[in-house]
């Protein structure tokens, strides 16, 4: 027991530095992917067919292919099409794509939940389509989507562990590295699991609380 604790104490700084990388990659993927998801949610409703189809393809591939494949595609595949990305760059590119694809569905559902009367009121007041979206529909739709988006953000932090496969020095890579050096796999992986849980459990509870609060607000 004591041996484990001192081993954990020794390894913790390294794992924490890995966790910072995990959080960075997640934050970047969300910062890029969610706005793109909003754009995609609007474009799939576009009346311009080619635009709608391209968006649909981007979304369906992003949702349909495993994130692990997208990560490797970005890291190993892109260099031979002339675009060399670092493992951080590939990770952000691939996870942003995934984020865009999933959040576009979440946001689309949020936008659809905005009552029809809202856009009709905006229209009769003379607001342009863009203004109606910007000031009336999108703010309300995003509010509806917020709990699901937060829940997705937690899943994204978990998905960042897949970047292990493209040599990004995030939490799991660090743990695995220490495991290979010390052969104390069980202990180091448990510590990594604890660290993930230490973020995800409070975050999940927080999201649930927000959801309940919003639910009450609406009622």
């Amino acid at each position: 027991m004591n041996a484990t604790l001192s081993f954990w104490a020794e390894s913790l700084p390294s794992l924490i530095s890995g966790m910072v990388v995990s959080l960075e990659v997640t934050a970047a993927a969300l910062a890029i992917g969610v706005p793109l998801g909003l754009v995609a949610a609007l474009l799939v409703q576009s009346t311009v067919r080619p635009l709608r189809w391209v968006t649909l393809a981007v979304v369906e591939i992003g949702r349909g292919a495993p994130a692990l494949i997208l990560l490797q595609l970005a890291y190993y595949g892109l260099p031979y099409s002339g675009l060399q990305l670092s493992s951080m760059g590939s990770a952000i590119a691939a996870l942003s794509w995934t984020t865009c694809a999933y959040t576009s569905e979440i946001i689309r559902a949020g936008l659809q939940a905005v009552p029809r009367g809202q856009s009709e009121a905006a229209m009769t007041l003379g607001l342009s389509r863009l203004d109606a979206l910007r000031f009336v529909i999108v703010p309300q739709g995003m509010r509806v989507a917020a709990p699901a988006l937060l829940g997705f953000a937690i899943l994204m932090l978990q998905a960042s562990s897949l970047c292990f496969a493209i040599a990004l020095p995030e939490l799991l890579s660090k743990a695995q590295l220490i495991g290979t050096m010390t052969f104390r796999y069980m202990e180091i992986l448990l510590l990594a699991a604890l660290l993930y849980a230490a973020i995800c459990i409070p975050a999940t509870l927080l999201v649930a609380a927000i959801e309940r609060r919003l639910g009450k607000h609406a009622a």
């Binding site: 009367g117 809202q118 009709e120 009121a121 229209m123 009769t124 007041l125 003379g126 009336v136 309300q140």
Partner: peptide, 20 residues
């Protein structure tokens, strides 16, 4: 269309104020 929307005000049964 812009002129029309500007010239004609509409009031709905369900108010349709912007809640946010």
């Amino acid at each position: 269309m812009n002129d029309l929307r500007r010239s004609a005000g509409m009031v709905f049964q369900s108010f349709n104020l912007f809640p946010h």
